[in-house]
Amino acid sequence: MTPGVDARRTRAADAGTWLFLASLVMFYASLYSGYVLLRAGSETWTTPWLARPILWKIQPFVVSNTLWLVLAFVNTRQWRLAAASGAPRSIGVWLPTMAASGVALAWTGAADAMLKAGSGPAASVAAASWFVLTGALALGVLGGGLVATWWAWRDRRSETPVHALRQLQRYWGLMLVVWFSIVVGMYFV
């Protein structure tokens, strides 16, 4: 393969990833704006997950979610740096996978706490917003985890291209941003 063709591919992948992320941003922003508009326009809004019994149950999940996501992001970065220096096996490339599973588990746990407290999606628009927003994030994280798993397995005897890892890292970056927006908009406001 001529270097010219390779450069074009990288360029296309770069552009493609940015476009994909832009589209995802619009998706999460639309869900988020739905939540904001509903909350701002409601006269009877209560925030069930901030009520005492659920809050205590949900808090650990919020914390672990954050940790897992940061871990996935940092680890993908390490993976990329290691790949760039030619030693990708030297770090645990399966961590994004674990992190994704961790987030999914944390979500299931939190959702369970919500349901047990009688705040299922049908209970109120607030509860419904919680399920949709955090659920969409968990799905996004799971998707990223699947890709990371696939790459780690596919390249178990070779090297994952550095530029591919750069795209993955950007993706985890976006997931982090979405998550922090949720934390600020749902848990601190």
């Binding site: 739905g34 509903l38 999606p121 049908a122 109120s124 628009v125 419904a128 917003s129 399920f131 949709v132």
Partner: peptide, 8 residues
């Protein structure tokens, strides 16, 4: 709203 009984 249609399948999970929410009221968005």
């Amino acid at each position: 709203d249609r399948v999970a009984g929410t009221s968005f």
